[in-house]
Design a protein around this nucleic acid. Structure first.
Length: 933
RNA sequence: GCCCGAUUAGCUCAGCGGUAGAGCGCCUGCCUUACAAGCAGGAUGUCGCUGGUUCGAACCCGGCAUCGGGCACCA
């Protein structure tokens, strides 16, 4: 109760809002109370979100902050709607990224991971993870993320690791995982294979070397050599053929003959293959099946041998002969030099081409033949495509569905093994006793859930033969780990308890309601999750557990990226990431959240945060901070004027007792509440933010509070009680509506306003339910006249140059009885708002007044010595010009017979009204100008 | 090469068939006891160009230009 008492002692409230202490206090209170702990048994329709787990690679940047703001806004809104909400946090182990960081650290210390050994390295990785995770969780708390920390997960947690093993075993049993020797993207920097998605094509200025390859057995048809072009001379050492197009007349006679490969001396065949473009270069292509994906395909078609000339560290191997040991780029120079020395270099041309780079390693990837594990993707992708045909999942904005679908079409198999240590070890055990104690391409293996199961399975298959041969079975687990995205792909169900199908969390919250993520990981993650779900959350075509779908989320909201002040994508490697913390410290988490969300109204567009790196200032966030301060002061004002009462104690007065501004505000409130709910629910969060901003600042503060001020301080208790009731009710409703966007501030102000005890939270209240019947266009337009009249009078005052403090005699002239009644009823309020000594309202203006136009039916007048006729004249001329321009346009339209004939009747009627209005205004302006002489 | 997005006030962006809005910035005047992180008043745009559809286009359709992004990739 001390809290409420404090809140109701306005003298103690400062004039500006200080977010830091307030935000920390509520974050602590929510967490201590377990306010966001989800309960499968709780009432309400389930609503769930699993947050995209950030990598434990350091800290969160503004992009994460943006995503957090979006997710938390959605989640808090749904909580206010009474849904049984789960918002599940977690982090991702980010195999290759973390290992890269650690290896770099170790190298900087002068060591090497191989000297450290696997166990020590992993120990170090875990401590890095603990530190990074701590930082990230601290940042999430600072943002006010309303997640259920009791359900926090990390992808390497024991239960999630068990899920990974289970997934691997089942996919293997389904025949969707296989092991084989293929050309993979090898990243020499990380010493591991990477998937196609981890390769980025870079356009580079390179060179095209033309080599002469002599025919083995002399000239044929006048040709004794072929010229091939290559961007990678060093690979010629592994050439096992030369290809020409089957219909190319120049070379038809040569197909089937052989070339003697220079520098190597190997005889290699000339083959005919459709892949060759006769128009490019000489129309002859060297074929290096072990070092180029296209050549690999050509080689396969023609049975060409695979000769690997490079080792996994990017140096040439023994098969490269005298070039062995050279780095691939040195080897390139050496091969070119050798060819030139032999007179076989025809020419070198500059050549722009795309080079595959490793995303993580930042070096060119090497297509390298190696034995890896793969997921057969087509069957899984097919299920996802079918689901998408049915509209599952629903993408917001819709256009991303196509991007997702296109990627799932013509999808290639997914290389999932990584030659790394940090990650989920592949649950496959090689029966090395079958191959002399070492792992080779042909060593048999068993896939199992653990070593014991592996041993049992191995025993079953190889035990008898081994015993017969007098060998003891010897098992060795595959040293490699799985692609990080393999475990991320299970995230929406592994975090909910899968593979335990009886898990209450899974039963309650799967499928999840909404996935919020960036367009840059639709392939990496969204598609992998749907594919994995397709393998495990359905049986045949039927979703498990009696669900209506196995797709892991109903909606996928795709957001844009936060770009830096120079419009660049933020990234760790570019070092241009913006840290949210300094902005939070400077302006408050609520301000940052509000700014980020308000900026996003254009669905799915990238946002640019204006941010002056040197000063740390951001005018966008500052504007949001100012808004927070406005709300703070509005509430402060309310507390000073409610006489210690609360929304509950005041209640809402009967409609019959309400005055114009009360009815107007409640009508606006009812509209706003309905609209804002619709916008939030439809993920149009930026529009919701703008709508509420306008309601709060324009309607509640600028209009309602200013109009009702005299009543709030009125002598008569009955009188002021009505205004207090309306103010308290509306402000409280506003705080509820803004809570998803600015959780801490609204929680604080709500407690101040309602006097609720510290263990009751706005976060757990309900969305306001104003009566739909309060929406009343007539009351709104009646009051709008008051607003317009006040503005016209103030404008006139400004033009007249009278001192602001000077009280004037003011007239409002209208022939409409209802408007006269409005002025009469609100005389004191209006007089106060415009600084009038007395306010009168006759139908027609009296002589000697300075007049201004409200509309065709109303003028306002000041009795004032004319000081600046010029200002007034130019104002009237402007009014006239505007009216005349409007008349011209409207009259033109009405004169068009097609318009009257084809446009909807109400549009035509409106047009006529506007024309009459404009004509009347023009006439008034002309008269006033004439009077001015 | 294929696909997608953007182009609106000085800046950052909303609006997406009935004749243009916000925030910041700018101009004028105000410390009017909720708020100067504020109040009042004000100015500012051939809505990228070009055809078309329509009674009517910033908004729909076609083309073009510029910028950004994704996918594929010929040595």
């Amino acid at each position: 109760m001390t809290e409420a008492a404090d809140a109701h002692a306005p003298a103690t409230l400062p004039k500006t809002y200080d977010p830091a202490a307030t935000e920390a206090r509520w974050q602590g209170a929510w967490e201590a109370a377990g306010a966001f702990r989800a309960d499968p048994g709780a009432p309400g329709e389930p609503f769930s979100v699993v947050i995209p787990p950030p990598n434990v690679t350091g800290s969160l940047h503004m992009g994460h902050g943006f995503e957090a703001a979006l997710i938390d806004t959605i989640v808090r809104f749904q909580r206010l709607q009474g849904r049984n909400v789960l918002c599940l946090p977690g982090t991702d182990h980010a195999s290759i990224a973390v290992q890269t960081i650690l290896e770099k650290q170790i190298r900087a210390e002068g060591g090497h991971k191989d000297d450290l050994g696997r166990d020590a390295f992993l120990e170090r990785a875990w401590s890095w993870k603990a530190q990074s995770e701590g930082t990230i969780k601290g940042q999430m708390r600072r943002l006010g993320y309303s997640v259920d920390w009791s359900r926090e997960r990390f992808t390497l947690d024991p239960d999630l690791s068990a899920a990974v093993v289970e997934a691997f075993v089942r996919l293997h049993e389904q025949g969707l995982i296989y092991r084989g020797e293929y050309l993979v993207n090898w990243c020499p920097a990380s010493g591991s294979a990477v998937s196609d998605l981890e390769v980025e094509m870079k356009e580079l200025e390179g060179q095209l070397w033309h080599f002469r390859y002599p025919l083995s057995d002399g000239a044929a048809g006048g040709i004794d050599h072929l010229v091939v072009a290559t961007t990678r001379p060093e690979t010629m050492l592994g050439d096992t053929g030369v290809a020409v197009h089957p219909t190319d007349p120049r070379y038809a006679a040569l197909v089937g003959r052989t070339i003697t490969l220079p520098l190597v001396g190997r005889a290699i065949p000339i083959v005919a293959d459709e892949h060759v473009d006769p128009a490019f270069g000489t129309g002859c292509v060297k074929v290096t099946p072990a070092h180029d994906p296209n050549d690999f395909a050509i080689g396969a078609r023609h049975g060409l041998p695979l000769i690997t000339v490079m080792a996994k560290d990017g140096t040439m191997n023994e098969a490269a002969g005298r070039f062995a040991g050279l780095d691939r780029f040195e080897a390139r120079k050496a091969v070119v030099a050798a060819m030139e020395a032999e007179g076989l270099l025809v020419k070198v041309e500059p050549h722009r081409h795309s080079v595959p780079y490793s995303d993580r390693g930042k070096v060119p990837v090497e297509p390298l033949l190696s034995t890896q594990w793969f997921v057969k993707t087509e069957p899984l992708a097919a299920r996802c495509r079918d689901a998408l045909e049915r509209g599952e999942p629903r993408f917001v904005p819709e256009r991303w569905a196509r991007v997702y679908r296109d990627w799932l079409t013509d999808i290639r198999d997914w290389c999932i093994s990584r030659q790394l240590w940090w990650g989920h070890r592949i649950p496959a055990w090689f029966v090395v006793s079958e191959t002399d104690g070492v792992i080779t391409e042909t060593t048999p293996y068993v896939v199992a859930r653990g070593e014991a199961e592996a041993r049992a399975r191995a025993e079953e298959r190889f035990g008898a033969a081994a015993a017969a041969a007098g060998r003891a079975l010897q098992l060795e687990q595959d040293p490699d780990v799985l692609d990080t995205w393999f475990s991320s792909g299970l995230w929406p169900f592994s975090t909910l308890g899968w593979p335990d199908e009886t898990s209450a969390d899974l039963a309650t919250w799967y499928p999840t309601s909404t996935l919020v993520t960036g367009f840059d990981i639709i392939f990496f993650w969204v598609a992998r999750m749907t594919m994995m779900a397709g393998a495990f959350l359905q049986e045949g075509e039927v979703p498990l557990g009696g669900r209506d779908t196995w797709i892991p989320f109903r909606d996928v909201m795709i957001h844009g990226l936060v770009r830096d002040e120079n419009n660049r994508k933020m990234s760790k490697s570019a070092g241009n990431g913006i840290d949210p913390l300094p902005l939070i410290e400077r302006y408050g988490a609520d301000a940052l959240r509000f700014a980020l969300v308000r900026e996003v109204a254009g669905a799915g567009q990238d946002i640019r945060l204006d941010y002056h790196r040197a000063s740390g200032a951001s005018s966008t966030v500052e504007a949001a901070r100012n808004f927070a301060n406005k709300l703070f002061n509005a509430t402060r004002f309310a507390l000073m004027n409610l006489g210690g009462e609360t929304p509950a104690s005041l209640g809402l007065p009967p409609l019959a007792e309400l005055e114009s501004e009360d009815r107007w505000l409640l009508s606006r409130l009812a509209r706003t509440s309905a609209q804002a709910a619709e916008l939030y629910a439809g993920y149009r969060l930026g529009e919701a933010a703008k709508l509420l901003y306008e309601f709060a600042w324009n309607d509640l503060c600028d209009q309602y509070i200013e109009w009702s001020k005299p009543r709030l301080a009125a002598e008569d208790p009955a009188d002021r009680r009505v205004a207090r009731g309306v103010l308290a009710y509306s402000l409280e409703a506003l705080l509820r509506m803004l809570h998803p966007l600015m959780p801490h501030l609204t929680e604080e102000l709500w407690h101040g306003l309602t006097g609720s005890s510290a263990d009751t939270f706005l976060a757990l209240q309900r969305w306001p339910q104003p009566e739909a019947a309060w929406v009343d266009a007539e009351h709104e337009s009646a009051f709008q006249f008051g607003i317009d009249a006040v503005r016209a009078i103030r404008n006139l005052r400004a033009l007249s140059g009278v001192k602001p403090a000077e009280k004037l005699s003011v007239g409002i002239h209208t022939a409409t009885a209802a408007r006269q009644a409005f002025v009469a009823a609100n005389r004191e309020k209006i007089a106060r708002l415009v600084g009038a000594a007395n306010l009168h309202w006759e139908p027609e203006p009296t002589a000697g007044q300075l007049l201004g136009i409200v509309d065709s039916d109303a003028q306002v007048g000041l009795t004032v010595p004319l000081q600046s006729l010029e200002a007034l004249r130019s104002r009237l001329e402007k009014d006239l010009a505007r009216a005349e321009k409007e008349i011209a346009g409207l009259a033109g339209r009405l004169a068009n017979p097609n318009f009257a004939g084809k446009a909807p009747a109400e549009v035509v009627a409106e047009c006529r009204e506007n024309l009459a209005e404009a004509e009347a205004q023009a006439e008034l302006a002309r008269r006033r100008l004439k009077e001015l002489g």
